[in-house]
Design a protein around this nucleic acid. Sequence first.
DNA 1: TTGAAAGCGCTAACAC
DNA 2: GTGTTAGCGCTTTCAA
Lengths: 324, 324
Amino acid sequence: MVARAAGVSRATVSRVVNGSPKVRPDLIASVSEAVERLHYVPNRAARSLVSRRTGAIALVVPEDVSRFFGDPFFAAIVQGITRRLDTSDYVLNLLVASSDPEHKTVRYLSQGSVDGALVISHHTGDALSTPSRIPVVYGGRPAPEMEDEAYFVDVDNLGGGEAATGRLIDLGRRRIGSITGPPDMTAGIDRLEGFRRAMDAAGLPADAVEAGDFTVVGAVAAMRRLLERETEIDGLFVASDLMAVGAISVLRESGRRIPEDVAVVGFDDSPAAISGEIPLTTVRQPSTEMGFTMADALIRLLAGEADVPRHNILPTSLVVRASA
Amino acid sequence: MVARAAGVSRATVSRVVNGSPKVRPDLIASVSEAVERLHYVPNRAARSLVSRRTGAIALVVPEDVSRFFGDPFFAAIVQGITRRLDTSDYVLNLLVASSDPEHKTVRYLSQGSVDGALVISHHTGDALSTPSRIPVVYGGRPAPEMEDEAYFVDVDNLGGGEAATGRLIDLGRRRIGSITGPPDMTAGIDRLEGFRRAMDAAGLPADAVEAGDFTVVGAVAAMRRLLERETEIDGLFVASDLMAVGAISVLRESGRRIPEDVAVVGFDDSPAAISGEIPLTTVRQPSTEMGFTMADALIRLLAGEADVPRHNILPTSLVVRASA
DNA sequence: TTGAAAGCGCTAACAC
DNA sequence: GTGTTAGCGCTTTCAA
């Protein structure tokens, strides 16, 4: 080790570099000086070989990146994560999880290449099948079978669905329908559950429900199906803004006015909410904060903190615009 | 090493694991079996300590992630990168570059934590100030002073600007203006240069130009300024679709019809191009391919290939819709 | 408080 | 072809 030019042993250099408290001030000074002068940078591999820590955490995202990276919600999560990491010594490893269980990702995670992992779970099946021995924090409520033991951060989809539906009810709407997400995505499930609770509480039937898939075209189809069954609909809760856009186009096509004939509430408060002709009333979710909180929880877990909450549900809020 | 349970030496295990050609088939079989049975996974840190390779590459993005992660263009690049990496043994490290030169990022890169880096350079100043000794491939043409020596992949902004302007000229427009990007972003500079060349070639003056900043509000302001100076405008090339949306709103506000009074061509072929009321004629850029190509170039560089082209300009194409 | 020495898990000469 | 032997650069007991 070159920095021994400071006239001390490698051990002392190591202590100084790692900020050990028991080093004489004058030594720490001369070592620092030598480090500076020689542009010494500790080798990460050697360090993690002995310390058994890598200083890296993985961000595991589902395979269809296309959807995820373009998705503003996901973008905000990543932003929140990087913001938290910025004031830490961890770096982020981006892993695109394949459905193939024997994929690189799994091997990588068990390779001890990262100290912990953040996994964005949207579909129920996404949750890391191979249980690794490193701490994992999920983004989004994972599958029910892991829900209790797992650490996760989620937005209050249930409360959001309830608030959205409540808005429709407060508006005096009585025949309220809903276009939901696919049945294997917990976010969609929870939003629907919120819808049901609000309807139940108001003594209204929660049966005008059709499943979408969080895309515009899926929503168009779902809306058409719904309209065939229920011509009297006067209120609609759609599980995402993008789907709301699709639903609204069908509604208008059928001659209905928004919000006069049918009041519509979306979910996400994405750019799509204000890009259409009629500004969407929707539910805002704290996405950046979600990413930040996920990273924070993982870092605390890695620091050995014992009282890290397993479940963290971030509040959502209703944003009233023109559609309802 | 536990896998010595296969009755061979660690060296042989290492050879088998790394696919060395000079190992007896029966040994490679029994070793593989033992590896499988014992769930042996080589330790990454130890391996890179001796091999001086990390199996990781960095993706360095400018600080304002907010813009970048939400940006479909960036999303597509990341997708292209991960797609290329998927069939390699490299993993991706995401680094958010701060403007602070003494930032984590710089230290990290010089720490030997990655074998190479991909850097998305949009602003001229973004280019890694600290010259690291690892191979770097830029996404987007970097600052002129590094343009020659650096490896980079870019889309043909110049050709795209030329084609867009050419479309306007072919349409018979004669008083054609342009809203450009900020003067420190090479993409915007090149698009403007394309505009100039097309105008020059047609013997038209290229002086109706105002600088935008790639945002809707910036474009609105730029359009207003342009309209004050040039009331006769009948054609407009806008350096991004998002800005085109802003420009069009101002144009309409002033009572002009698109494309009858003013034909408009954008750039990017982003979702914004088809989300507005009038589908935008625009220039499509191969963003996913750009990411793929960047990763591919870096991987080849890391493999020691000598004939990796330093500059790679990917073709753009005009997409004709309703606005021009 | 500091130094000496051991060793983290692996690969790469070098012999056999 | 395979085993033996050195380290890779660092942290960390253990003595001093």
